[in-house]
């Protein structure tokens, strides 16, 4: 892997989720697109500000669920009707009410696993290295009590001086430049 040099982006630190949300909206309005927010816990409004709600996780979950329900139901039908038919108290071999619960469990299992691993995959995880961990304040605060907005250098609008000035007028606790 080639060694990369340069700037990853500018990292602004905030104390509250409200300030972070406002800053994100402001950055969006100013035309920035390649940016990311980092919060110690999920902040719904920040996700809305970044417009990351419309992603493919729900679709993957649905597909997983459908796969689970079909697999389980067909498997049960095959076992009970063709593979190993047993007469249970005179009930029909194809007794669908009894199949519902295992089929439901498989729906949940497959949907859950698809959601979880789909989310990992779409997020590009696992990721053993991330440049932001080079910033000491990020290392200490991102999982604790700090809220970060990072404008990434690959954004066409990114300019080291202007972007820093832009972030500073949003009154963050600090703005630091993060190396790749």
């Amino acid at each position: 892997m080639p060694v990369m040099y340069g700037t990853y982006g500018l990292l602004a630190e905030f104390d509250t989720p409200a300030e972070l949300t406002r800053a994100t909206y402001a950055a969006k309005e100013a035309g920035y697109r390649r940016m990311e927010c980092y919060t110690p816990y999920p902040v719904e409004e920040v996700a809305s500000a970044l417009d990351v709600h419309d992603n493919r996780v729900p679709l993957l979950t649905l597909l997983g669920g459908l796969m689970g329900v079909t697999t389980a139901f067909l498997m049960e039908t095959w076992i009970s009707v063709w593979s190993y038919p047993i007469n249970v108290a005179g009930r029909p071999l194809f007794s669908w009410p009894a199949f519902i619960i295992p089929a439901y469990e498989w729906t949940i299992l497959f949907a859950g696993l698809s959601a979880c691993f789909g989310m990992f995959a779409l997020n590009g995880l696992p990721q053993p290295y991330h440049p932001l961990f080079n910033a000491p304040n990020f290392r200490l605060g991102a999982t604790d009590n700090k809220f970060f907005l990072c404008l990434e250098a690959i954004d066409p609008q990114f300019d080291r001086e202007q972007s820093r000035a832009f972030l500073e007028q949003l009154q963050p606790v600090s703005v630091v430049e993060v190396d790749l």
């Binding site: 409200a18 909206y25 409004e45 809305s48 500000a49 417009d51 709600h53």
Partner: peptide
């Protein structure tokens, strides 16, 4: 969904 919150949020323009 972002749009609903977005327009709503900016219409008020105050933060208190």
């Amino acid at each position: 969904m972002a749009h609903a919150i977005d327009t709503h949020g900016h219409a008020h323009g105050h933060h208190g």
